[in-house]
Amino acid sequence: MKVTVNVDLTPEEARRAMGLPDLTPLHDRYVASLLETMNGQVRPEMLENMMKSWAPMNEAGFAIWRQMFEQATKTGN
């Protein structure tokens, strides 16, 4: 027998139902700190260094990320 149950929850309701902590204040502080550090100046080198610090990947892995970002930001030629 197969039973399917659909539950309609908002992300907040799902988080609470699963007992996960609310990290909104931490996220807000992180974003504010990041914006303050950048001081309105976003340079490609900064983004590259930030991406390298997020995940331990080699140059080949980083090239894949770079290619995805370039394709996503292309203006339709």
Rank of each mutant, 00 (worst) to 15 (best):
M1Y: 09
K2M: 12
V3K: 12
V3G: 03
T4A: 13
T4Q: 14
N6Y: 09
N6F: 05
V7D: 01
P11V: 08
P11R: 11
P11Q: 11
E12Y: 05
E13A: 15
E13H: 06
A14V: 06
A14I: 05
R15C: 03
R15A: 08
R15P: 00
R16W: 02
R16D: 07
R16Y: 03
A17L: 15
A17I: 03
M18Y: 12
G19T: 07
L20K: 14
L20R: 15
L20H: 09
P21M: 09
D22P: 03
D22F: 10
D22W: 10
D22H: 07
L23M: 13
T24R: 15
T24K: 14
P25S: 11
P25V: 11
P25C: 08
H27C: 05
H27L: 15
H27Y: 12
H27E: 14
D28K: 13
R29V: 05
R29S: 10
Y30E: 08
V31N: 04
A32L: 06
S33R: 12
L34A: 13
L35T: 07
L35E: 14
L35W: 04
T37M: 11
T37H: 12
G40A: 05
Q41E: 14
V42T: 12
V42S: 06
V42F: 13
V42I: 15
R43Q: 14
R43Y: 08
P44E: 03
P44D: 02
E45K: 11
E45P: 00
E45G: 07
E45V: 11
M46K: 11
M46E: 09
M46L: 15
M46Y: 12
L47P: 00
E48D: 13
E48A: 14
E48T: 11
M50V: 07
M50F: 15
M51H: 04
K52R: 15
K52C: 01
K52P: 00
S53R: 11
S53T: 07
W54D: 06
W54C: 13
W54F: 11
A55C: 06
A55E: 08
P56G: 15
M57G: 07
E59C: 00
E59M: 04
A60T: 06
A60I: 04
A60L: 05
G61N: 04
G61T: 05
F62K: 04
A63S: 06
I64P: 00
I64E: 03
W65E: 03
Q67E: 14
Q67I: 02
M68D: 01
M68W: 00
M68P: 00
F69A: 14
E70W: 01
E70F: 02
A72Q: 08
G76V: 13
G76T: 13
G76Q: 12
N77D: 01
N77W: 01
N77G: 06
N77M: 02
